[in-house]
Simulated scan of single mutants.
Amino acid sequence: MDQFRNIGVIGRLGSVKVVETLRQLKQYLIRENYHVIIEDDTASMLPGHGLQVASKKLLGEICDLVIVVGGDGSLLGAARELAKSNVPLLGVNRGRLGFLTDISPVDLEERLAKVLAGEFIEEKRFLLDASVERNGQALGFGAALNDVVLHPGKSTRMIGFDLFIDGHFVYSQRSDGLIVSTPTGSTAYSLSAGGPIMHPKLDAIVLVPMFPHTLSSRPIVVDGKSEIKLVIGETNEAYPQISFDGQMNIACAPGDIIRITKKPFKIRLIHPEDHNFYATCRDKLGWASEIAAS
């Protein structure tokens, strides 16, 4: 019996290359007698596709596998929507870096055939939940697979805030903000701000200050079960923002409280059997694969 009989397909909008790969993917899956369900926004890129159409939420309920065609950003968006459904996700890279979307369109059918035949690695990644409170009332909620970021928005002013971890006061800081990252996000924005690379299997969260006022402020790695609380300083003149994977923002005000915890459920990522985290780092980050001859 096939492990993946009903396969959902999501594509990044507005890309000719994604449309090419979607057409190739559709033809292959239909030829191999899989039941293909296309996400409703993606369907608009394939007029006359003749496939069943469903929302992202419904894809999670009726599919055995969801294939995301695009970049890491596309997979991040799908992961936030589909985490609760426990459906596995497979990424086909039509973006730039591709830490999460690791099947290349060049050998798509060959690699996909192996995955669909059961030759794959599955790993689970945790997400973050965040809430913003104002005067004791919930103002907004969001989820992130990579990172939750406190940042100045369009302002150029520094942000003053207090950091608490598990109820313990850690420090007051003035900086351009704070990146709160999962291991998945440690090779993204967090890395560019000087944060450490964390193996995806780690149950840990890293907090990376952005251009802090004091040079002694350094990234802190804490237990993945920690509750992180940020209190925006009452004297701030600027109104900072909280972003989720860089794709959604909530405007904050002085005195607001931001709470960040691990989501209670994880996403399931499917990789080809030869997937290796360190090889991906070598490839994507330009690490040397051999010592150059002197």
Rank of each mutant, 00 (worst) to 15 (best):
S172Y: 12
E109P: 01
N86D: 14
D129I: 09
N86F: 04
A138N: 14
S186R: 01
C281D: 05
L13D: 13
V9I: 15
A54E: 07
P254R: 13
H271C: 04
G194V: 04
S226H: 03
I267A: 00
G140L: 01
A204S: 08
L112M: 04
V92M: 09
M45Q: 14
T235L: 11
H35V: 11
C281S: 02
G98M: 07
Y189C: 09
T42K: 06
G142Q: 05
L127Y: 02
G167W: 12
V36S: 04
F141L: 15
V115K: 08
L269I: 09
L269A: 02
E290F: 13
P88F: 03
L25F: 14
V16L: 13
L145Q: 00
L127E: 04
I242C: 06
Q3A: 12
N93I: 01
S15A: 08
A293H: 15
I67Y: 08
P219W: 10
T261Q: 13
L22F: 11
E273C: 05
V132E: 06
L108G: 00
K262I: 07
G246P: 09
L128V: 06
L58W: 02
I291W: 09
D64M: 05
A83W: 03
A144N: 01
I242A: 04
A54Q: 08
A293N: 14
G140P: 13
S104F: 10
H168M: 11
L59T: 08
D245H: 07
A253F: 11
D245P: 08
F4L: 05
R268Q: 05
A253P: 03
H275G: 01
L139T: 09
L65P: 02
Q173T: 14
L82V: 10
S155Q: 12
R218S: 05
G60M: 00
S181H: 02
L59K: 06
T101W: 02
A83F: 07
